[in-house]
Amino acid sequence: MPDTADQAARVDDVHRLALAMPHVTVDHAAGGNPVYQVGGKSFIFFRNPRPDAVDPVTGERYDDVIVFWVGSEADKQALIQDDASPFFTTGHFDGHPSVLLRACHVGELTRTELSEIVQDAWLSRASKRRATAWLAAHPPAR
Rank of each mutant, 00 (worst) to 15 (best):
Y36F: 12
V38M: 01
M21Y: 03
S124W: 02
A141T: 13
P139F: 11
D64W: 05
D94F: 06
D75Y: 06
G59W: 10
E60R: 14
A9R: 00
D82I: 06
V67P: 00
H28R: 15
F88P: 00
E60H: 08
G107S: 11
R125C: 09
A74V: 12
T132N: 15
A103W: 01
R130H: 14
E116N: 11
A18I: 06
V38G: 00
Y36D: 00
T4G: 01
N48G: 13
H92T: 01
K128E: 13
A20N: 09
A9M: 01
D55S: 03
D12W: 04
R111T: 03
L114Y: 04
N48S: 14
E113I: 08
A9V: 04
V35S: 02
D27H: 12
M21C: 12
R10I: 02
I80Y: 02
R125G: 02
I66A: 08
G95K: 07
H28T: 10
D6E: 14
V67E: 14
A9C: 05
V38S: 05
Q37W: 01
K41H: 09
F45C: 07
G107R: 09
F87Y: 14
H15V: 12
D3W: 10
L100R: 02
F43Q: 00
D55A: 03
G32W: 03
W69T: 13
A126T: 06
T112K: 12
V24F: 01
L109Q: 12
V65I: 15
H28V: 03
G40D: 01
Q119K: 15
G91I: 00
S98G: 15
M21R: 14
K76D: 05
D3R: 12
G59L: 09
G40A: 02
K41P: 00
M21E: 14
